[in-house]
Amino acid sequence: MVDNNRWGNFFAHLVLIVGVAIVVFPVYVAIIASTHPPGTFVRGVMPLLPGPNAWENYRTVITEGRSRAGTPPIGGMMWNSFIMAMSITIGKLSISIISAFAIVYFRFPGRIFFFWIIFLTLMLPVEVRIVPTFQVVADFGMLNSFAGLSIPLIASATATFLFRQFFMTVPEELMEAARVDGAGPMKFFKDILLPLSITNIAALFVIMFIYGWNQYLWPLLITTDPEYYTIVMGIQRMVTGGDSEPLWHLVMATVVLAALPPVLVILFMQRLFVKGLTETEK
């Protein structure tokens, strides 16, 4: 081996440990800040060691929220985020897998045309066309609803491509055998293609869930009713909703809770996450 150099390895570990410490630092600070009473933030520098108020702070944000700034309790916002993330994920996966199936396993007039229509969505992120998209959603009366939060974000060129790539690698013989046995297209899809795609579905699920949970601009526009606030946008209301300094101990408790679900998903499904990430972006 070329790389057997004791000092080199020591140096590499040192760089990585310092690097990891820097990467983890912002979250460490947030966790620490969420355990302190409000008084800590009035004087001097932010604390770097845990305080005594963790239970109190988390109870406050979960059950009461911050009514003065118009933020509802966190529990409700977490639930909204969860519903939104799940609807986006399941919606994206299901419409993408069936359109990929249509494109790969059928030959029909307009196939290329439809493929390009789906492809175009890749070029039109919601951020660049917010005003007209908002108008469309408003015209449909979908403001302040879960439908408005999720349906416009459901179309997905990347998921369709990934499924198409995967279907192209499925052996031809499987389909021939299914046809010889008299299976129709939907039976083939349900009994053969779907079970084969499970790993791909799971990998995409992880990516899409994080994407859905972290939506910010869209819920900010679509929801005016605190009933439908999601947690990621709720934090913005907490930091700017008032003239004084934000109540840091409560803001940071909320930040920790908002970050927890997607972080857990990544940590527990790291292999799927890496697979999903590296394959969707090709």
Binding site: G19, V20, V23, V24, V27, I210, W213, N214, Y216, V232, M233, I235, Q236, V255, A258, A259, P262, V263, V265, I266, L267, Q270, F273, V274, L277
Partner: peptide, 13 residues
Amino acid sequence: TFLVWPYAIAPAI
């Protein structure tokens, strides 16, 4: 593992 999870944090957060 220590380096991948910040991806889960929303840009706003």
